[in-house]
Design a protein around this nucleic acid. Structure first.
Lengths: 209, 209
DNA sequence: GTCTATATCATGATAGAC
DNA sequence: GTCTATCATGATATAGAC
């Protein structure tokens, strides 16, 4: 007996959130009408308002959903290593992968100005996943891996380059898929904050050129 | 509404652009109606449309104006030093100062999603000032100050931390005025890309001035 | 819970006098 | 060039049948 095909009854909420993510990320929240979402999701406008209350409700639900997914991801990745060095590298690797696999998700999380359409939500930078990043850096500092300095400065310096590469990639400025830049980007970020620089040539002792 | 003490000779365009910058940065382009700009600028809607054609025209003029100012600033700062090291430091210092003095300007340039309301303009990251930053890094690489690597990676790593501090400050996450963090932020960025790390403690054998 | 049809109203834009 | 008064569109949101 083959596995059951995709169930006929697909959850309406998911249908709507999926379409909304596409549209919001692609053309912006304000350039997207609820009727656009109706068309893209196949769900009627009555059902949409029944489930989400108003247009902002759609964005709120979307942000909550993606925020939770993201926090889960950060927790998972962080749990698989015990040094800040390895955690930060794995995290950037994961973010780079996600940028290629789900650019819309990343655009919504990293790039959208949530304050403009969700005036009550706290700014992105203080949302859970970003706070977790700071905590990760804080532990690295306590363990003596990261130089002692302001935590905001440290986490901005460690991840700022990677974040910029992500937004640049989403903007079409970066030609290659991000994983191609992982080693270079991470090693720059790590040099920025590490107590001791990596031996700049682990095996390649020659200086090029 | 603050009436300008200097009466007669105020140019209408500047009045409008000034009000628009405030409103766009404060509440977003799409949350600002042309009537809001009328109220804030004291200029009639007829005059506004006479000068700018449509609402996008206001945003375009604003971006052109600020982009030019910014490019000029980058050129000025870069001209006052001849190493990438000093140029990058002076640039970040200037950006930090501007963030405190003109947060609205910085918010519009760094934080607004121009693509959403100016679909024809190139993305911010490829605008003139940002390209100048990459060229600055490129010259540093040619001079042997900066390690050889992808230019996008290098400029993202050198300035990414500072940019993140700026947006975090605009978001209200950073408590102190940015100049307080200048040394820490710049030295992280520079360590990230420099061929040789700075001596970590504060003995600076700088040439004066 | 889902749908269609409709109400309401703010917004971008114009007309035309001065 | 500046202004007031007005239009036309398309948006969010609701009503109410099934």
């Amino acid at each position: 007996m083959p596995a059951a095909p995709v169930p006929a009854r697909v959850d309406t909420r998911s249908l709507v959130l999926d379409a909304a993510l596409d549209l919001f990320s692609g053309q912006g929240y304000f350039n997207t009408s609820v009727h656009d979402i109706v068309r893209a999701s196949g769900v009627s406008i009555g059902s949409i308002y029944h489930h989400f209350g108003d247009k902002e409700g759609i964005a709120r639900a979307l942000q909550a959903h993606l925020g939770t997914r993201m926090a889960q991801m950060v927790a998972d990745v962080a749990a698989q290593a015990d040094t800040c060095r390895d955690q930060s590298r794995a995290l950037i690797a994961r973010l780079f992968d996600m940028t290629e696999a789900e650019p819309r998700t990343m655009a919504f999380l990293f790039y959208a100005r949530h304050r403009e359409f969700l005036p009550d939500e706290p700014p992105v930078c203080s949302s859970r996943p970003f706070v977790m990043l700071r905590e990760l850096v804080e532990r690295g500092m306590a363990r003596g891996e990261v130089r002692r300095m302001d935590v905001l400065v440290a986490s901005s310096s460690l991840f700022g380059g990677a974040f910029r590469m992500i937004t640049s990639r989403l903007d079409g400025i970066v030609p290659e898929p991000l994983p191609a830049y992982l080693d270079a980007v991470w090693s720059c970020g790590w040099r920025a904050v590490a107590v001791e620089a990596e031996p700049s040539t682990s095996r390649r002792k020659r200086s090029p050129r």
